[in-house]
Amino acid sequence: MSDFSPLIDELVAGFESAVLEDSHGQAVVRLQRDDWVDFAKAAKDAGFEVCVDVTAVDWMRQRPERFEVVANLLSMQHKLRLRMITTVGRQEPTVGSLVPIWPGADFAEREAYDMFGIVFEGHPDLTRILMPDDWEGHPLRKDFGVGAVPVQFKASHQVD
């Protein structure tokens, strides 16, 4: 049992692979990729009516699975927050889309696709959102350079 809320405990208990963590006093649930959408549905039914944000983290070679997909949920009625995290590999960075559950995840998932190249299956319109359509690469991946141009009179640090 955690000290967050019985609601979250009950929610997490329904999924065998889900692991509840305490991250600096915040509830974080780590999920298998296959449980991602099912858990989201259960969370919505449990009262998390807002999906605040979907984003990703690129761990490059530091972790066995390269990308973490992070979704922040909010329950206004219970005044609770819950963070869902799952991992996807570099070969097939694919995870189910949350848009059918929360339409508000639309832009956020498009941004994660644009910036990290994570494919959200079931997203109605998964296209680039911030970068131009003919842009190559996904800028927030760690192997995408910052793209700094050399500046005259400045040799303080080199950005690679």
């Binding site: 970068m131 800028p139 995408f144 350079g145 910052v146 793209g147 700094a148 141009v149 500046v151 950005v159």
Partner: peptide, 9 residues
């Protein structure tokens, strides 16, 4: 000059 944002965008 691009200011403090010396990056790809």
């Amino acid at each position: 000059t691009g200011g403090m944002f010396n990056n790809y965008a």
